[in-house]
Simulated assay, not measured.
Amino acid sequence: MLNALTDLVAGRVFANVAKADTVKPFITYQAVGGQPINYTTGEVPDRENTRVQINVWASAHLEATTLGKQVEIALRTSPNLQAEVLTGRAATYDETVDAHGTMQDFSFWN
């Protein structure tokens, strides 16, 4: 997933949070759940599903919206990821870092 996103923001992709002085735009991501596989036989599955929220942060709303769409396209078209889009992009604003953002959830199998 990281390889598909790093070129969009000159490598500024961070797990969970970025430092307050990080140059915008940047991307954060976090695991927010997934779809467990449960076998009645007690076997341990050889794959896992992870639901990941991708957050885009920028100086202006339009920039965040545009970059959010680029993230979705990059994940949808990456041949190695097989990402599934779970939600539409939601707009947000973070006062602590004065950043406009978008949030969107994706599903990945690994």
Rank of each mutant, 00 (worst) to 15 (best):
M1V: 05
L2W: 07
N3A: 14
N3M: 09
A4F: 07
L5W: 07
T6F: 12
T6D: 13
D7G: 13
L8E: 14
V9A: 11
A10I: 08
R12C: 11
V13I: 13
V13F: 13
F14T: 02
F14H: 11
N16E: 14
V17C: 05
V17Q: 14
A18N: 03
K19E: 11
K19R: 13
A20T: 08
A20C: 07
A20N: 14
D21L: 04
D21I: 06
T22C: 04
T22K: 00
T22N: 01
T22E: 07
V23G: 02
K24R: 06
I27G: 03
I27K: 01
T28P: 07
Q30N: 14
Q30D: 11
Q30R: 15
Q30F: 09
A31M: 14
G33S: 01
G33P: 05
G33C: 01
G34V: 01
Q35K: 09
Q35G: 04
P36K: 01
P36I: 02
I37G: 11
N38S: 12
Y39Q: 03
Y39C: 02
Y39D: 02
T41C: 00
G42Y: 01
G42D: 00
G42N: 03
E43T: 01
V44Q: 07
V44S: 04
P45N: 00
P45A: 00
R47S: 12
R47G: 00
R47E: 14
N49K: 06
N49P: 10
N49Y: 13
N49V: 14
N49F: 15
R51M: 05
V52K: 03
V52Y: 06
Q53D: 08
N55T: 15
N55W: 01
V56H: 06
A58M: 06
A60V: 12
H61P: 08
H61C: 12
E63G: 02
E63R: 05
T65S: 12
T65M: 12
T65K: 11
T65R: 10
L67T: 02
L67D: 04
L67I: 02
G68F: 10
G68I: 04
K69C: 10
K69A: 14
K69R: 11
K69Q: 15
Q70T: 04
V71Q: 02
V71G: 02
V71Y: 07
V71A: 02
E72C: 05
L75R: 05
R76Y: 06
R76S: 10
T77H: 03
T77C: 11
S78F: 13
N80H: 15
N80A: 14
N80R: 13
A83Q: 06
A83Y: 08
A83L: 09
V85M: 10
L86K: 09
L86I: 03
T87Q: 03
A90V: 13
T92N: 09
Y93D: 01
E95P: 10
E95Q: 15
E95V: 09
V97L: 05
V97C: 06
H100W: 15
G101R: 03
Q104K: 08
D105P: 11
D105G: 07
F106Y: 15
F106M: 04
F106G: 08
F106L: 10
S107I: 02
S107G: 15
S107W: 09
F108Q: 06
N110Q: 13
